[in-house]
Design a protein around this nucleic acid. Structure first.
Lengths: 110, 110
DNA sequence: CATCGTTATTCTTTTGCGCAGATAACGCAT
DNA sequence: ATGCGTTATCTGCGCAAAAGAATAACGATG
């Protein structure tokens, strides 16, 4: 039996971090710009911006180091805290996924 | 750190069973009627009906024993297979939840 | 044979909310 | 001072999901 799961970190009963923000953060890290990250995922910039803002506000951590203006127009790099968040969330998801796979095979042997 | 997760059983890359159908099935078991189950969850009957139909078609199992007509108008009871599905899915979710709780505390100690 | 409340099925209407797109602000370089 | 590509914000609209209406069939019971 196949399965799929989603795992969110919550705060004040609101979704605060999950696959969406994770993917976006990693793209920013790779491309150095929130705009480029959004474009590369066919996501509107405004949506990407809202996601980052939301996570930062709810989690009270700074994810992006923004630079506005300048020769290149600016850009964003991700903070140390963001890198830690990525690392921990990915480790968490990997561990959980392993367990789910085992259990699905246990309870749904087909 | 709080968390939330959703776990779906998949078939042909489509969601086939999850929390929604589970809750509905249990309500039918409790109330003996799909209509009453939908009402009790402030869900439209057509939606409830579609959910049951979808699961049955995709999973190729019969979930409800329908009775149309009669003094009380009829009603639905859930099949043995449906009971097994409930039991296994709940056991799976419980086991996974336990693991997630451990891991969340391990990776997000706050 | 009329009544009743269900299941079954399809169609139309509504609603909410996610999203894209427009606009502003910014600052370095030339 | 002009241009450029960012970040930052706001607004209104599209569209899918959901609700609801309409319709039919059913069968025990009085």
């Amino acid at each position: 039996m196949d399965y799929r799961f989603r795992l969110w970190l919550m705060k004040n009963n609101k979704k605060v971090f999950g696959e969406g923000p994770l993917k976006l953060l990693k793209k920013v890290e790779e491309l150095g710009s929130l705009r480029q990250a959004a474009l590369s995922m066919q996501m509107s910039y405004s949506k990407a911006w809202k996601i980052m803002k939301h996570v930062e506000e709810e989690l009270h951590i700074k994810l992006l180091e923004r630079k506005i203006g300048g020769k290149t127009g600016g850009g964003s790099t991700i903070t140390r805290e963001a890198k830690d968040l990525i690392k921990n969330y990915e480790a968490l998801v990997a561990s959980v996924n392993k367990k789910i796979e085992e259990d699905v095979n246990k309870y749904f042997m087909i």
